[in-house]
């Protein structure tokens, strides 16, 4: 992890939405590092700020949202302060993103070739024929049969899995250094999910591409990622290597997440759900955001916990880490 300069370093990132009802701190002091060729899993429940983190890196936060603080160092360049044109040049060429819902990411009224050729030509001044050939090769690489023919098709002529492959192929067109995958397999059935996970992992290993893999599903992370960041209410509450975090979660929230994964439970026993719901990020009260749902909460938790490391290389935000280990 430390042998080469990291691809992405996010430091104290804050992205807030200035809505009429008040400020939503969707991302609040988030830091992580993705090494070259590494896969970082970003886990958390719905609404915890995972997508907004991804969009912040891409410079695609929609109004009324704005990156209000922190640094996003991509190969040493701070994207948080770069001009729109500088970021545009990186988008799609050096940093790509794949979205959650493959049914929505492709423009329904444009043919696949139009949508892929324009992606090639946005960054390389090549003629249509060359761009087309590159698009075709990319489609072939992600396992789309008869790519020449499929290029002529419209998105609605593809299944969900195939559309996601088209999106992945588009993301791969410029051999990016970093791909942000925002739950790209959630909408797909399990077999296809497995295939895509396998292929992405292979790709990453072969080409040295780094991935940020966003998901709410810990079991996906378990087989895929090298490191994991657990996110809750806009903050990272626990981080570490996948093996360490999953084998020995220190944060009560991580423990709860692991408890709700089916495969890790004894058959027949009901799944352990985390009680309660993700709090509204609008006007979040001071103190640990997990307080209302945490079995270990006490008066100390009325203050927002800072990052501490009860064990080496195991940063968490909690006053009462689960040091005894899971039962």
């Amino acid at each position: 992890m430390t042998d080469a300069a990291p691809t992405l370093v996010v430091e104290n990132l804050r992205t807030h939405f200035f809505t009429k009802a008040g400020v939503v701190k969707a991302v609040d002091d988030v830091s992580f590092t993705v090494g070259k060729g590494r896969i970082l899993g970003l886990v958390g429940e719905s609404g915890s700020g995972k997508s907004v983190t991804g969009f912040s890196i891409m410079g695609l936060v929609d109004a009324p949202g704005r990156v209000v603080g922190g640094r996003i160092l991509f190969r040493g360049e701070n994207l948080a302060e770069a001009s729109e044109e500088q970021v545009r040049r990186l988008r799609g060429s050096r940093i790509a993103m794949i979205f959650q819902d493959p049914m929505m990411t492709l423009n329904p009224v444009l043919r696949i070739d139009t949508q892929m050729i324009e992606a090639v030509q946005a960054h390389d001044s090549v003629d249509r024929e060359t761009a087309r050939r590159r698009a075709r090769d990319a489609l072939g690489k992600v396992g789309i049969p008869s790519p020449d023919e499929r290029l002529q098709a419209y998105p609605h002529q593809f299944s969900g899995g195939m559309r996601q492959r088209v999106a992945i192929a588009t993301a791969l067109l410029h051999k990016p250094d970093l791909i942000i995958c925002d739950e790209p397999t959630t909408a797909l059935d399990v077999t296809i999910q497995g295939q895509i996970l396998y292929e992405m992992q292979k790709l990453c290993r072969d080409s040295g591409t780094s991935l940020v893999w966003i998901t709410h599903d810990l079991s996906v992370i378990a087989g895929l990622a090298d490191e994991v960041c657990v996110m809750y209410a806009g903050r990272i509450v626990e981080a570490g290597t996948v093996d360490e975090v999953l084998d020995r979660p220190l944060h009560p929230y991580t423990l709860g997440l692991i408890g709700s994964v089916p495969s890790r439970n004894v058959r027949g026993r009901p799944l352990a759900q985390i009680p309660g719901m993700t709090p509204s990020l609008l006007g979040l009260p001071a103190g640990c955001a997990f307080r209302t749902r945490c079995g270990r909460a006490d008066d100390a938790c009325l203050i927002t916990p800072e990052i501490s490391a009860p064990l080496p290389d195991r940063p968490i935000r909690c006053f009462h880490p689960v040091l005894a280990g899971p039962a």
Binding site: M58, L60, D62, R88, R89, L90, R91, G92, S93, A96, M97, F99, D101, M104, T105, L106, N107, P108, V109, L110, T114, Q115, E118, A119, A122, H123, A167, T170
Partner: peptide, 27 residues
């Protein structure tokens, strides 16, 4: 402009002229 396909078009690094003139216009 709120649709995912516009966001994806931006994620591809397209210039806003093309996004508005082709992706939005056609729809």
């Amino acid at each position: 402009i709120l649709q995912d396909y516009v966001k994806f078009a931006r994620a591809k690094g397209l210039r806003s002229g093309r996004i508005i003139g082709v992706h939005v216009f056609k729809n």
